[in-house]
Design a protein around this nucleic acid. Sequence first.
RNA 1: GGUCCCAUCGUCUAGUGGCCUAGGACAUCACCCUCUCAAGGUGGAGGCACGGGUUCGAAUCCCGUUGGGACUGCCA
Length: 483
Amino acid sequence: MSGPRVRFAPSPTGYFHVGSARTALFNWFIARQSADGVFLLRIEDTDAERNREEWVDGIISAMHWLGFVEDEGPFRQSDNTAAHDAAVTALLEAWYLYPCACTADEVQARKGDNKTPGYDGFCRDRAVPRGPGTALRFRTPREGATTVPDLIRGDVVTSNAVIEDFVVARSSGAALFALANVVDDRNDRITHVIRGEEHLPNTPKQILLWEALSAATGNVVQVPVYAHLPVLVNEQRKKLSKRRDPVAVESYRDQGYLPAAITNYLSLLGWSPRGDEEKVPLSTCIEQFRLEDVSHSPAFFDLKKMAHLNGEYIRELPLEEFLEASAPWVSPWASNWQPTDRTPPWTAADFDGDTWRRIAPLVQERVALLGDIVEMVDFFFLPVAPFDEAAFDKTIGRDENGQALLSNALEVFATVEWTAPTLHQATVALGESLGLNLRKAQAPLRCAVTGRTVGPPLFESLEYLGRDRTLTRIREALAKVAG
RNA sequence: GGUCCCAUCGUCUAGUGGCCUAGGACAUCACCCUCUCAAGGUGGAGGCACGGGUUCGAAUCCCGUUGGGACUGCCA
């Protein structure tokens, strides 16, 4: 007995959707659980109008970036049209299909008082000749029922009477998804079809097609077992949509999510590892994952939780890896990959790798996304600190103590030993002379030097910024008050 | 409307008839730590949709109600 053969079959109509990523992940789990499991990638690109070549590369590279690598493929569904055509012919000859000349409007009009849902089978017995304008419909059995063996939901039984005579081939002769997908799954010897819940309603049709193909061609292939994953929803509890919701894996990469955090988070949607720990390595998921344990109800895609997890993964990175991982955001010119929609506000000339390396450990424990680093360290590399006017007003502009503290700091800092601890002590003393605690005393200093009210620890920041630049910025802040 | 799927804290989930006074995580609140912000620590609030059964015993099984979702294309 050979291992499971699963496939991930995206349609290249856009960026790599997080819902697709989750489907790929669960498929990949099943493949990796067995030494001889196979994870196959098939690009379902038969709808030329909606597919774009650039999306294919994007989806594959995003998938690889997440860590899923296909064992077979990537195959193109469009390369299998000969097999699809042969299936259409076999099915037509075996009387499973019939030509239908109804237009979309006519089908719509006939829906009125029919008993079966959808198309009423008007052309089923009219012996319409096959020709231009005739689609091919499946002669759905009127009796009996079709059972979908679903590992997640159990057997799902649908009465054949409620399955319409669906279109299998366009009037152009080309097979539609329902058929093409089945033909390919048969040829690829797929054992487990793991896909989104939105496919559940058309699965009975596909099983009917599968069995018809076995009968018509004499090539009897075992129907796969199915697993329909609950959909991912937004805050309105609607299926995540490309149009409304931020779903592109590529955009999460741009923001600075780590692949491990994304896959770990995705594994938690509809499933959970044993025990109380949710932050688990993929190897643990592979060990423990069972389709039978997947939840039945839609899951909300919670960005806050994913960001939190990402922060945990960032914090546990060894410094060297953190430095390497953050390069696309802090020094993209020296990186082999860079986010598409953001570049640092500083230039390569103004960037100082040594300073970054020194402050990095303090930044590492403060960010949830790698993209957040930029705002936290920009004052080091920008010629002029990026002033937050409200903060300036509050801590310096309208605060005489703040101004006094800066004036005094100008003198003291001119000669004090330039290390974080001594700067710390000096600031405590500066504050005391004005009756300010350190919390109050650091505020104007921080604002003058970093332009912000929040940031990495101040005294280390001053040390790494250097005496000259610190004094200059204090002078500039004071000048700003005056004028 | 029709077909199908689903229902445990705000959210993701653990729970498969007694271990449940329902556990964890995110979010939230308080306190501690603290130069800001985070991180971390401690603690708190917060849930089995409702109604009937079955059973000695139900979050767990059955039925109904209500609520939500998916699908309903000559897209995939």
